[in-house]
Design a protein around this nucleic acid. Structure first.
Length: 462
RNA sequence: GGCGCGGUGGCAGAGUGGUUAUGCAGCGGACUGCAACUCCGUGUACGCCGGUUCGAUUCCGACCCGCGCCUCCA
């Protein structure tokens, strides 16, 4: 039994998909006006792990993650760059796909783009106006009337009165209530726009997700996920729009990832304290970044720091060391056993990846013990388990040598290193240990660590 | 001010009403020409104060501290 923390009910619940064995999941993706930062990576990786695990447990998962490719920030950035908005978004989408691939994030099953759903969005707005939940204002915008939806605030636990009392809501003449939000935005002169019954314009951010999710997954689906800062107003507004338009419950389980912090502050665009994942991946292998993200629970806040990334690197190194030089047994020959059960027990509990990783370490330890005792077959058997369970987390799927020797811009080629290892081996044979140590130190100085074993010497990047 | 989350050993990070998390770092030992890797061993951990209980880090209450959302942000 899988239990998932539902933001809506604020507790862990047994997960029962609407259609047995099938999971329909929607996650809010990127607004593509800039490179992905670590916070985006966290959401991508978290829901990637969730998808992998649900599939591992036998569910058929339809994973939809949208792309917001029209928005104020996109237009502004394109304007600053002096390029058409769609060139900017195409470039950023390509970059996002590259980043994802490097992080080991599997592609979603569908990746709808807002600009491809304008008709559906307009149709939904139509319904909302017809049913009295939205109105066209004098300025050409269309707004959702928040007070027309009794349950507004049920996700974020906010009361409308409190929202109205807060001075931070946008007070605008055209709105009937300050808490109302735009479904359709009238185009300013020269802006890209689409025709609509309310004049040329473009969709508001929230309605895009309502339209894309219900079009792809139906009026009601199982899981809706996203970053922590989307809970309000974005997800709250999605519920209001969708439930008013369809008359059905929108989503059964709401999932939100925790924030990434830098020096105790949330990493965010608005604070400007963000690190893009490509700049982080220049310093650390992509899999180390992924390990760092997966090593704590998806809902917890985690601090980004060089030290934490470095530690993740050391830890992942230990895991790959266990697999080094072993050809794992065939998966079919290794039935699920105790470790698989402990792993599943952790993951069943709201995707407790930290607990699951502890199992990975236990398996690694077992492999090392088998090797110490010369039980080659047992080691291969355990290695297969480690690769299998690692795979559910999207880890440990590389050839260990590829991980250890990943090109991170060292000055020595693999051939140079092999030649020096040979020279050192010769020196050791001749009991010229001073020379052997000199070579080892020289390599270490250049970021190469040597590991001696009975089978010979291997190397890895520090 | 409203709503929500959290404070675990040097650090990171799970979890539990009574019994080992795990990893990194440290220390001791084995292995090694010496190291590295690996193995074995090793640590007065649960913010503070009350309460419930035979027993609380774990439940309840108060307090202190930190964080998030309430505006675009994953």
């Amino acid at each position: 039994m899988i239990r998932i923390y539902n933001t809506l009910t604020q507790q862990k619940e047994e997960f029962r998909p609407i259609e047995p064995g099938k999971v329909r999941m929607y996650v809010c993706g990127m607004t593509v006006y800039d490179y992905c930062h670590l916070g985006h990576a966290r959401v991508l990786v978290a829901f990637d792990v969730i998808t992998r695990y649900l599939r591992h447990r036998g569910f058929e998962v339809n994973y939809v993650r949208n792309i917001t490719d029209i928005d104020d920030k996109i237009l502004r950035r394109a304007d600053e760059n002096g390029e058409p908005y769609n060139e900017l978004t195409d470039r950023m989408i390509k970059a996002m796909h590259e980043d994802e691939a490097r992080l080991g994030v599997l592609s979603p099953d569908e990746e709808p783009r807002a600009t491809a759903y304008i008709d559906e969005i307009i149709a939904m707005i139509h319904k909302l106006i017809a049913s009295g939940h939205a109105y066209a204002a004098d300025n050409g915008d269309v707004y959702f009337a928040v007070d027309s939806f009794e349950e507004y605030g049920k996700l974020s636990k906010k009361k409308l009165e409190d929202l109205l009392a807060g001075a931070r809501v946008d007070v605008q003449e055209a709105k009937r209530s300050p808490a109302d939000f735009a479904l359709w935005k009238a185009a300013k002169a020269g802006e890209v726009s689409w025709p609509s019954p309310w004049g040329d314009g473009r969709p508001g951010w929230h309605i895009e997700c309502s339209a894309m999710s219900t079009c792809c997954l139906g009026d009601t689906f199982d899981i809706h996920g996203g970053g922590p800062d989307l809970l309000f107003p974005h997800h709250e507004n999605e519920i209001a729009q969708s439930e008013c338009a369809t008359g059905h419950t929108f989503v059964n389980t709401w999932m939100h990832a925790g924030a990434i912090r830098v020096n105790k502050e949330k990493m965010s665009k608005s604070l400007g304290n963000f690190f893009t994942i490509r700049e982080i991946m220049e310093k650390y292998p992509a899999e180390v970044v992924r390990y760092f993200l997966v090593s704590s629970h998806y809902r917890s806040q985690v601090d980004y720091s060089e030290e934490n990334l470095a530690e993740a690197g050391r830890t992942l190194t230990r895991l790959y060391h266990a697999l080094r030089g072993i050809v794992p047994a065939k998966a079919a020959d290794v039935p699920e056993a105790e470790h698989d059960e402990r792993f599943a027990e952790a993951m069943d509990d709201d995707f407790n990846t930290a607990g699951a990783i502890a199992v990975l370490h236990a398996v690694a330890n077992e492999i090392n013990q088998h090797r110490r005792d010369g039980r080659e077959e047992d080691a291969k058997h355990s290695a297969a388990i480690l690769v299998r369970l690692g795979g559910v987390l999207g880890l440990l799927q590389q050839d260990p040598e590829a991980f250890f020797q990943a090109d991170t811009g060292g000055e020595l080629s693999a051939e140079d290193i092999e030649a020096m290892i040979q020279a050192r081996a010769d020196a050791r044979k001749a009991k010229n240990f001073a020379e052997a140590d000199r070579i080892r130190d020289e390599l270490l100085d250049k970021g190469i660590i040597l590991d001696d074993s009975r089978e010979g010497t291997t190397w890895r990047k520090a």
